[in-house]
Write a protein that binds this DNA or RNA. Structure first.
Lengths: 212, 212
DNA sequence: GTCTATATCCTGATAGAC
DNA sequence: GTCTATCAGGATATAGAC
């Protein structure tokens, strides 16, 4: 908002780049890196395909910009919710709600694209951003819960903090309401019901509780 | 083995089709449907690319054959292990071992391919096979555990049997030792340690147990 | 049943006018 | 900064000889 001082052009230099990233985000996250062509991205933003190459040198560079933006968004939400007051369980519940509410793409596919479709350098860049921005804040929260005696630690046969963070992400991916194959219906209920179930299962598991 | 009575040809009609499916299985499961070309499959089995089309009408048909074979393999293992004696937990542990030992591909990617890269008819065929051959046997086992009071049922705020089966598959996918992005290391330990951890977390969760 | 040759299409990326 | 035109390569699939 502070940059709008040059000329009367509505779309200054950086602005169309942002529009391209937004359009690419929707397409890449819905269909995957390989399934989306640069022509589709250009058409979605009202440009011709070669115009994209004025803003991004390669398709891969565009994907990296998309993914970095998404990691930054997740990081912001997670760090904000991790700082709230309440038990570790309550804060993790908040993060679960946040993810179920705002992640509208196929998480495993993004994971696959990052690991298999990109060059080594892009992979390293995104991997570091994902680890530092998503896994690390979650791991800190789990470590706090283990220290407070709320969660089983590695000494009690469970997981390291970052292992627990990875498991949390697997739970989140499972409870995201993506369109599923075949007859398997998504977990029913709204975000509140699904996030509560997610946390309940993550903390207590499927077995009957001893006191029940 | 019973069909080997025609002529001296080592590779009768159906046999090369099987070789093609095996080669395609390795490639598709390692890199995904879109990333593997029919030329690569042909080269891996020592044929030229057009020769494939004598055995399979389209690339998609070949993929369906690959996926149906894999579902049949999983079904066989699961039904065998589900019939053993022992608690539901012990039998689920056996199935977890079986999956960690024999699934060498990227499960979420196969899932994505089935849901997004194939036509409606192939998707329906594979979805039905997957549900009937993998989800249904698991769900029957979970239903048995819920009936025996070993597992929380839907009435106790947990999951339906098929919901629990889906969660089990999510756990299995998470604990498969696929090469991961960035710095996040795979869960350490061999198959026995990882399958035991999987079952422990699935049954008891991350929270400290009341009696501990 | 496998081959060579090829049709047709789509891809990412570049050249150069305006 | 965006356009038109195009390159070079790879994709699936087909035609027809042997």
């Amino acid at each position: 908002m502070v940059e709008r001082r040059r000329g009367g052009h509505e779309q200054d230099r950086e602005e169309t780049a942002q529009l391209i990233v937004q359009a690419a985000r929707r397409l890449f996250m819905a269909h995957g890196y390989r399934a989306v062509s640069t022509r589709q991205v250009a058409e979605a933003v009202g440009l011709t395909q070669p115009a994209l190459y004025h803003h991004f040198a390669t398709k891969e560079e565009l994907y990296v910009a998309v993914a970095l933006g998404e990691v930054a968004r997740l990081r912001g939400g997670m760090e904000r919710l991790a700082r709230r007051e309440g038990s570790v369980r309550e804060r993790l519940h908040g993060i679960a709600r946040f993810m179920l509410n705002t992640v509208d793409y196929d998480f495993p596919m993004m994971y696959h694209d990052m690991g298999a479709e990109l060059g080594e350098q892009s992979r390293a860049t995104l991997g570091a951003a994902f680890y530092g921005g998503v896994i690390a804040p979650l791991a800190a929260l789990f470590a706090e819960g283990q220290g407070a005696g709320e969660l089983r630690g590695a000494g009690q046969g469970a997981l390291t903090p970052s292992g627990a963070a990875g498991l949390f992400m697997a739970f989140a991916a499972h409870f995201l309401d993506r369109p599923l194959v075949g007859e398997r219906a998504p977990t029913p209920g709204g975000v509140e019901a699904r996030s509560a179930l997610l946390i309940d299962l993550l903390f207590n598991g499927l077995a009957v509780k001893p006191e029940a």
